[in-house]
Amino acid sequence: MEKILEKKRIDDWIKALSDWEVHAPALQDGIWTYQPVSGAIRLDHPNTNQSPKGFAFPQREIFFSFEQIKGEPPKLKQVLPKTPQHAVFGVRPCDGRGVPRMDKVFNDHVEDPYYNARRKNVAYVGLACNKPPSPNCFCLSVGGSPVSTDGLDVQLTDMGDRYFVKAITEAGKALMKAADGMFSDPSAAEQKQLKQVHAEAVAHPQRKVNDPDGAPAKLKANFNSPLWEEMARACIGCGICTFLCPTCHCFDINDEVQNKAPLKGQRVRTWDNCQFPDFTMHSSGHNPRENTGARLRQRVNHKFQYFHENFGMHQCTGCGRCITGCPVGIDIVTVVNKVTEHAG
């Protein structure tokens, strides 16, 4: 389904989506974040500070609650998320491409009921990038594109005073049908303009991973390279790169006890991060990834080697958040290029 929507009517469209909880990027406290829509939205954001992965994989998820009176068996109660239907507007193509990658992680071998309960209720309304929203964009290097529709339910393309609106999935069609009368059919000239806008979008220069296809083998060959420690020398071991990433999905599970006697609490899953020194700490005190070099290698190899070996695609979608956010200049494009060039 392909339609045209006048830009000034986007708020009317959102108003018509009364069956959905609509979120869109908003500038608050100096950063762009997804916020519940109240009033007019603007889709002129660079990219959001954090990726939209939290809609299906929130930083904190309660698995079950537990209670136990001394001498009695414990009582467990599963807490499956019951979320309303969400429509997330303004998702950039890199973040769209993060969605199928997360779907794989949470459904390969084991289907994660918590992730899936949220995921089935989220529709992503993407916005093509007419020009790279960040100086650290590199989607073209990792099989993506500023006009990719992968993972999106609807794709919007900014064409001046109009959006070209394309439904990609059934969920996307449902969003458009909820406001049927607001859309018009695209003319031949508008179809042509779309092609031109997309062609220009793809032609914008971006940062470049020089040999993405060769990366898995070359990273593997360089597992023991001294380059890792050298490149990670400045790493401070914070969680910015992974917490902002659209595809990082590692988590920790803890029992949060609210009351000791009678015992009462919740088992919760929270985001975890391979860059934290205690991430791989064994209970013996041994830490197999004992320095920042080993931890940087894990992050980069996961994106460009291990995931590729498991699923036949790079996990990194080229949003550039880890580069922009790093307080000490660690730059995944430079890192991958250095290692792949090192192997010659």
Partner: peptide, 29 residues
């Protein structure tokens, strides 16, 4: 978001045992 960048970037936050870590004391054999 508890990325701990403020702690990690701080030269004064050098404690081996930090109240926020999952292991708040040195573990040995």
């Amino acid at each position: 978001i508890r990325c701990f960048a403020c702690r990690s970037v701080c030269p004064m936050c050098y404690c081996d045992e930090c109240v926020v870590d999952s292991i708040t004391f040195p573990v040995t054999s």
